[in-house]
Amino acid sequence: MSMPHDTFECGHTLEELSLYLDTGEFADPPHLQSCPECRNGLDSLRRLSAAGNELFASDVAAAGSGTDDWMKDILANLTLELRPGRTIPLRSEDPADSLSETEGAVIALVRSVADNLPGAVAGRVRLDGDVTVPGEPVTVRLDLAVLFGRHLLDSAASLRQDVADALARHTELNIAAIDITITDVIDAPREEQ
């Protein structure tokens, strides 16, 4: 690989200037102010960087939207392994039987209850405690994003009740607490950049 002739008369190189632009490291910073060659070099590198940004923007625009067919095809071909999580036992009437539900099903249930609250979107849901042992106390931790302007404090109490009702209906877990954390406030529709 041949080295380009990139050493200036002042002895510095475009390589050093390139590193300086990325890291701010340079052996003799005042030199950069006084040396016309180095300043020209930095200007060139900045123009390159600007052209790179333009190229990037044009490439992303040319790639199309995430709702286009190419992405639909990719998503249709994806093999996403489901995440059953732990096995949560349910009482059986016959000792020969083994009845259970998956942690993944219970988490999805909690998520959908939260999603049903107007202006709210569930985030991560965790079941803290040994859900595989009947009667063990379990704490539900639910992250929530809310739309700005909604009166969430009122609805947090009713959400807690809805989650408790759903868990009582669909599990035999001993729910010790339901902790709801509002992690995000969404103020407007957003898109990348």
Partner: peptide, 28 residues
């Protein structure tokens, strides 16, 4: 799930049956 276990047992009677039922989704 208890209903499922009972229905399977009844369907296969008089065979001696053990039923393993897992709920993978609650269509909430």
């Amino acid at each position: 799930v208890r209903g499922v276990a009972a229905a399977v047992r009844k369907h296969l009677a008089p065979a001696e049956v053990s039923v393993k039922v897992t709920v993978a989704r609650v269509a909430a």
